[in-house]
């Protein structure tokens, strides 16, 4: 099926991906630019456009811990790269 993601604002939003956020930073998810199945999985776990996120821990190239809809989620950097965020 559709393996590649097609993200119109890729260039612009790359700078604001979840992966670039520091520990303690908060923001709002703008879009999830990922393969469709991954996006669906993230959505089921609560990461959808418009939701508030808070980064609990993020360092080096290890996984991140974020708080979304009251739950702590651990996601790898590759995945966090695909989540565009508006920092607040």
């Amino acid at each position: 099926m559709k393996k590649n993601c097609w993200c119109l604002r890729k260039k612009l939003s790359e700078r604001n991906s979840l992966a670039t956020m520091k520990s303690g930073q908060k923001g709002k998810v703008v879009s999830v630019c990922s393969r469709s199945r991954m996006a669906g999985r993230l959505a089921a776990m609560g990461i959808t456009p418009g939701v508030d996120v808070e980064v609990l821990s993020s360092s080096g190239d290890g996984p991140l811990v974020v708080v979304v809809r009251g739950a702590r989620m651990c996601l790898c950097r590759n995945m966090a790269d695909k989540v565009q965020v508006d920092p607040t």
């Binding site: 099926m1 119109l8 879009s31 469709s36 669906g40 959505a43 089921a44 456009p49």
Partner: peptide
Amino acid sequence: SRVSEHCQKTLNMHPEAIIAD
């Protein structure tokens, strides 16, 4: 596939994300 393409063009979202939304 038609609706998927349409959604990605106009809303920049996969149908899946819209459904979740």
